[in-house]
Structures are given as C-alpha cells and as structure tokens.
Amino acid sequence: MVIEIRNIFDGIGAFILFIFRFFKELFKPPLELKEFIKQCYVIGYKSLPLVAITGFIMGLVLTLQSRPTLAEFGAESWLPGMVALSLIREIAPVITALICAGKVASGIGAELGSMKVTEQIDAMEVSAINPFKYLVVTRILAATLMIPLLVVFADGIGIFGGFVGYNIHSELNIIRYNSLVFETLGFVDIFPATIKTFFFGFFIGTIGCYMGFTASNGTESVGKAANSAVVYASLAIFIIDMLAVQLTDLIF
C-alpha cells in the first residue's frame, strides 16, 4: 500500500519534471519548424472529418432532445441560442477534447512508445539530435494550438447541426437562426471556453508524449503507453474542465 502510494507520487513528480523540461527545451534552438508543421497537419487536419461528424451530431441531437421541453413552455425560439450556448460553453470543447484524447494522445503514445522500444529515440540521441525537442516539444505545441482550432470548428459545425435539427420540425432560415444564436452569445460564453481548450490541447499532447517517451522496453509497453495516454488524458480533460468552470464562475 505504502509502495503504491509512493509510486503514484513518483509518477506525478516525474510528470511535473517532464512539463518543466518541455518549457526549458521550448526556447532552445533549433526551432524544428518542419516537424511542428507536420504535426499540426497530423493532429489538426487529419482530425477534421472525425470532429466534423461528432460536432454535427452533437448539435443535431441536442436540438432534437431539447425541443420537447422548450416547446412545453412555448419557448421554442430559445432553442438556437440555448443549443449554441451549451455547445460553445461545454459540450463541443469537452467532446472534441475527449475525441482527441482517443485519437491524438493514443497515437502519440503508441508512436513514441514504439520508437523507444525499437531504439529510434536512442539513435537520435547518439547522433547528437535532441529527441525531446524534435519529438516531444513539436507534438505538445501542435496539440496545444490545433485542439482549440478543432473546437472552434466543432462549435461551427455543431451550430449548423442545430440548424438542421431545428428545421426537421419547424422552418427557419439560416440567417434568422444565426441571428438568434449570436443574440444569445456573449464574450463570457466564448472567451473562457476557448481558453480552456488550450489547456486541453496542452495536456493531451503532454500526456501522450510522456507515456510514449517513458515507455519501458518491450512491445507490451507500447500498448500500455497508448492505453494510459487515453485514460489519463480523458481524466485530465474532466479535471481541467471542472477547474475552468469554477474559475469562470468566480471571475465573471
């Protein structure tokens, strides 16, 4: 029991040191711009179809599920605003981040884990190339920048899904629908929700990289790295979301 608790604290300590190392290496040359752009493409562009489909379904389903209750109170006209508010403040950031935890964190964990097991990371180190800078810093930065963009994209697609859902039972043109959406939305709804997605992205990238980069030798550890990356990244998303909501509530 004592050993297990000590292992947990050892793990947390090692993870914190890993984050410190990221910030230390971040400002060191070389810039690794080519690899960073490649990772932005892999993490951002290649996740677009998945995020688009889930974003659309989120908006559509939320509209269809909320309509009966609002209709009961004769408040159907609130539907576009309410759906947009729910999407932008909570649902789109969290669901998109969870999808990225599954796709991006596990992908990074498995990729770096297999590089570690097959000594590719060691090969980089002995040829005087900093593997942390080349592999870790670029991936964390790309995740930190791409996941907020994916969330904004999911917001937009989700609102469109809401429009489609609304028009299944009623009739409303897109201009009117959008004006109802933007009448409801304010700075307080968009700004904090977008800021927290940078933290989601940072932790998805960091946890994926940490799990892969510290994988022990043996093929079994590749699977473990990918699996742990998804589990811990998902957990981190919920914890960050809870903290962000509390903080937003205090400040605004």
């Binding site: 297999s114 590089m115 097959t118 000594e119 590719q120 060691d122 090969a123 002995v126 005087a128």
Partner: peptide, 16 residues
C-alpha cells in the same frame, strides 16, 4: 564527442 562516434543498434533503429 557523439558526432565522432557512430552507433549501430541491434535492429538498425531506422526511423520508421
């Protein structure tokens, strides 16, 4: 110093 040393790993360790 590492630049003056070459290391051949057991399985080649090629970047996949």
């Amino acid at each position: 110093v590492r630049l003056r040393i070459g290391f051949l790993f057991q399985n080649g360790a090629l970047y996949d």
